[in-house]
Write a protein that binds this DNA or RNA. Sequence first.
RNA 1: GCUGCGGUGGCGGAACUGGUAGACGCGCUGGACUUAGGAUCCAGUCUCGUUUUAGGGGUGUGAGUUCGACUCUCACCCGCAGCACCA
Length: 813
Amino acid sequence: MKYKIGEYLMYPFSKVENKWQKKWEEEKTFKAEDCADQPKYYVLDMFPYPSGSGLHVGHPEGYIATDIVARYKRKNDFNVLHPMGWDAFGLPAENYALKTGTHPRVTTKNNIATFKRQIKSFGFSYDWDREINTTDPEYYKWTQWIFQQLYKEGLAYQAEVSVNWCPELKTVLANEEVIDGKSERGGHPVIQKPMRQWVLKITDYAERLLEDLDIIDFPESIKEMQRNWIGKSEGADVYFKIAGTDERLKVFTTRPDTLFGATYMVVAPEHPILEEHVSEEYIKEVQDYKEQAMRKTDLDRKELSKEKTGVFTGIYAINPVNGEEIPVWTSDYVLMTYGTGAIMAVPGHDQRDWEFAKKFGMPIIEVISGGNIEEEAYEGDGELVNSEFLNGLNVDKAKDKIIKWLEDKDLGEKKVRYKLRDWVFSRQRYWGEPFPLRIHKESGEVELLDKDELPLMLPKIDKYELSGTGESPLANIDNWVEFTDPETGEKYGYDTNTMPQWAGSCWYYLRYLDPHNDEKPWDQEKEKYWMPVDLYIGGAEHAVLHLLYARFWHKVLFDLGYVSTPEPFQKLVNQGMILGEDGEKMSKSRGNVINPDDVIEEYGADTFRLYEMFMGPLDRDKPWNTDSIKGISRFLNRVWDMLIDQDGNLKGNVKDVEPDEDLKTATHKAIKKVTEDMNELRFNTAISELMVLSKELGKQSEIPISVVKKFINLLNPMAPHITEEIADKLGMKELAYYEWPEWEEEIVKEETIEMAVQINGKVRGQFEIEKDADKEKCLEKALAVENVQRHLEGVELVKKIVVPNKLVSLVVK
RNA sequence: GCUGCGGUGGCGGAACUGGUAGACGCGCUGGACUUAGGAUCCAGUCUCGUUUUAGGGGUGUGAGUUCGACUCUCACCCGCAGCACCA
């Protein structure tokens, strides 16, 4: 009945686990019922990209956590939706095709099979009937459909946008393939090159994406990252007249209060003003500087940022508050992509301007007192000086006053700006969703395909090489690039770009609600029932990409009435990383990778699940430790040995007897602790509590069956196989849906309590007393403790503090 | 530089709204069973001190609030992650 694994004798975990996994699959135990007359709970994993190397031990950490929650909620009468699927478009499969000629569809299919086998070996309670795959035409049909809705709303447009171009490889690279300004493969330099791209207008939603962070329960770090990414800043646009013309140069500033301190202006090298107004004698210098700046990669711009550079343009602008002429310079520390691409420089109160002014000998004027502008710019609050009608005000008041003044005179206006840029939504790649539209050859006009023409299928191709111009392999297919409409005889072409990998994951949580619907992406009744996602668990690496994009799409769908909630994910939790035994990130090159298949083979899925949850708090990084797994394995073995005999039957001393008072208290305490821990996702302490209870049980000569049932039930969400097997022998039917036990507060509180006595903050003794005893009685007992009396000799008792059920604190002189 | 998170035994980690620091697990030490044990069971395990008892010290560092601080306040040090000339 026992397996010998290495040096251990273990319960027959592999037999038990296979048995139950098979049963769950055959009986569809975890099928979720749509719109049931029961409260719902939607618990979601970030679906994986099925890579060729299979699952690593970091993947299951989140999956185990969600599975425990799913199983726990089922026991508490929730109708649980717990699905899984595959985010299968993407570069690795295409790169593999380039190398081997294997079609990405084949690679993807094989990888999914591996992932699915591995995921199934953990005994997760997914409703596999809802499995989805973003590369399935039945799925991406609706990804295309959503894109069309965005297009119709004016939220998708084409623009010349710079992309990562690698001249050496003659190809465009995705952002993920560019590391520190160089190509991931080969380490060749990457430059920015403008190309026609699809762009989504996420900036229209900047304010709502920011505001609604307040209504969702995400980790503070993620919210903060999203806030930084959106980068809201409030200030004013100010118009400076260009001397000798009627034109105005618009700048954005968050510090309009310092307008009197503006001593020069700076425009980005790409700024259009440089095309027209540069005077003869400066043209060459400006042109040279421009070219030099354009040639710099992003990396160079950052690296060379230590020392400010720039040239004078010969242009002067007029400061609207005092009519003074100030010079306009150009420098690459001003970015064309933010604000208006031009700034007013206030060297007294902005450190960047201060550095520039020092280098090029510009005047520095103090307009806010409180700092020493000889040494550095003063960016803090203070009283306004040298500013005429603003003098004497503080920064906030001065801002309000100057903005009003500017608006009254039509010299500026209050303005809010965001760092967030529109989202470049096309990739020059084959293995992604084609854009659901055709482009008229002659006019270049875009026509959306009809709904019944969807999905626009990816064509078969033989060659995966990118075309030399940086277009995707689709550009090599003649009847994709050009075809004739049979009805009108007009010539059209399909877009050779495809959507980025994020597209499919922007809405997959909605497809799970109704995965086989071929009329609509999802049924609205089902959407109303299941949404929002109650708990979403995944890695922190998606903090600002997937999670921001998905929120954006969801809000668009909300505005169009397709979904009923403003936010898709009510609560988000990031699991920490599982590190190697050496405390370093797991990687092949370090040789510290643990393969989950090996662990399951040696110890079983239940031990694996329990171990990963026992390692520490879910959201923290934790090093793997092979020795520590043995502790968990021993625990499960002890539980088995305590209850099951050599023939696989319930042991004779497991009887229908009443537990004694101590065991009863321990049981109720455990129920309370485990329940509270489940609600807070504190699985490590829940497991420790169950270890304590199992030890108590092990001490009994006759083990009360009622307690065993509760114990097995509490352990079930975390270790589902072994507990189902034992439950079966105990005559409990379908443990997965067995009602979660309850505790009685009265029993949890012990009859007698041990209280401590402190004298001047040091513990000097303990005494036992019945619970909730009054203060007088506590004090009396405390003073009677022998060691306490010794410490009270010859001193004066000046203060007595009694905290019922905790301690007595005495202060002496 | 900015933002966020963290720093507790040899190790992973516990400690509710401030109330007996170190639960639980690993490892280690001793013992039992055994031909043997790297299996299993029992006992011990923050540190100094001690026959036992009593004591002293102790949660990154330094101050502070309090009868009482891992927990609250201030300053600083270290580690991890993200952002980085965003006007």
